[in-house]
Design a protein around this nucleic acid. Structure first.
Lengths: 249, 249
DNA sequence: GGCGCTTATTTGCATATGCAAATACCACTT
DNA sequence: AAGTGGTATTTGCATATGCAAATAAGCGCC
């Protein structure tokens, strides 16, 4: 277990104490200062350092645990949780996992890679500066040998250390990024478009066939990390979700 | 404010007391026994009736409030919340609201309605019995006069009182149902398909043009309520959502 | 009637205290 | 070395208590 520096937890005096504690720890977690596996100080230590009662500290930690940011176990203590790989319907972050959950065999090919300045059309689509250095990848994911998704991805070199040395021979870029970069904010959009000539060819479908397009952009502390465009043949894919009226499952 | 019968809250003895209280009240809310607006008894009353301390009752209520099931205000007390009309990206339940949020003028036409036994293909799609009575509706929603979504809907008469008398002249069926029926579970699926001849005509698009298809089925206590098929012209629509790695916004 | 003040009710927050449950760790035995 | 049992640590839960903040409702005054 990774140790923490206790004095990193600082209150800001705004609002209820339990919420100050909650936010202080949450910020350390989402900023990456306390990466997954880091040990959160025990209630006693926090209580002394912050001058709050144990119940107040407890309340903050219980809430963070319910939110999934930390994991608590008696006697062994509290650690920062690993972010869940996939969550609700559209938080599908790992394509290999998605395919394997369908009981199919996963494989992928990196069709192209280029490092350097982004092409003008890429700059616009992903909201970059022309001077930013990026890696531009095209990857075809297969399920049981059949084309499953076509992925086009731009990775912002400055925010992802080790990018140049990685050749994505063993792990597709999406999964690799999950392990080698942090993200604090993501946005995605779903729409339907017809496949273009090149896309249709790669996915083995007809030109103009309806496809589901998922576009996702990811930031870490407002710096862009990666942008991806996933094209799913419409006939072969459905995104399914369940929910209740108050948001619960 | 609607009064509640205090003795309706019953504990089941399983697990922590605060959680028993939480579940007991939650069940009353989601079952519809305490409809939105119902007054939840004050902490003092619950405390006496249940033989728990106020802090324990408080903990249960605070959690329910954070989950959005109840709304609490000092002095005026606690009431059951109205289910949020729209929530995350795909919990768009009210099309009029969606359109108006885009700053466009909303209108709709009921293109057809038939009451009676469901067509065989509807039976299958919705998991009904052939003997169930349903209303079958086709509605075109417009934004600024332009076709916006094509809605095809089946409503299960047995679970929706007052259905036969309603003509949907003033409120489109989706919104009407939100007010006149309860639901405890929903499922939706998104996919991409090409517009059929009839659909293309109604939506003023070309045959085969890619569309986003949202299918949603809704149940109340495992009895079907309604099933709907929403066809959005792909070129004109994107569903956008934002989220963070731990599920928070 | 309307306006402003007071009061009572209800929730919100924090503390102190005590015990229970889980379990990592250590010492001891075989 | 391997099991065994006790102990200390850490979280989980519940209670009792006190005060603060918000505000609905009542009261009195003009």
């Amino acid at each position: 277990m990774i140790e923490t520096r206790l004095d990193a937890v600082k209150l800001d005096g705004a609002g209820p104490v339990y919420d100050q504690i909650r936010r202080a720890i949450r910020d350390l977690v989402v900023s990456g200062e306390w990466p997954p596996g880091t040990g959160v100080p025990p209630e006693h230590a926090l209580m002394e350092q912050l001058g709050a009662s144990r119940m107040t500290v407890h309340r903050a930690l219980v809430q963070l645990a319910r939110e999934g940011l930390i994991v608590r176990r008696r006697r062994s203590g509290t650690i920062v949780a690993s972010p869940p790989a996939s969550h609700a319907m559209l938080d599908i972050l790992s394509i290999p996992e998605e395919v394997e959950q369908l009981g199919q065999v996963y494989a992928y090919d990196v069709l192209s890679r280029s490092d350097g300045r982004p092409a003008p059309e890429v700059v616009e689509r992903f909201g970059l500066k022309r001077s930013d250095k990026v890696a531009h990848l095209v990857v075809l994911h297969r399920a049981d040998g059949m084309p499953h998704v076509l992925e086009e991805r731009v990775i912002h070199a400055a925010t992802v250390p080790g990018l140049a040395e990685e050749d994505f021979a063993e792990t597709p870029p999406g999964d690799w990024l999950l392990k080698h970069s942090l993200w604090s904010q993501a946005e995605h959009a779903i729409s339907a478009i017809g496949a273009g000539a090149e896309e249709a060819d790669l996915l083995s479908i007809a030109i103009g066939e309806p496809c589901l397009l998922v576009e996702r952009r990811t930031w870490n502390q407002s710096k862009p990390v990666t942008a991806v465009r996933l094209l799913y043949p419409g006939s072969r894919h459905r995104f399914v979700g369940r929910f209740g009226p108050y948001g619960q499952v």
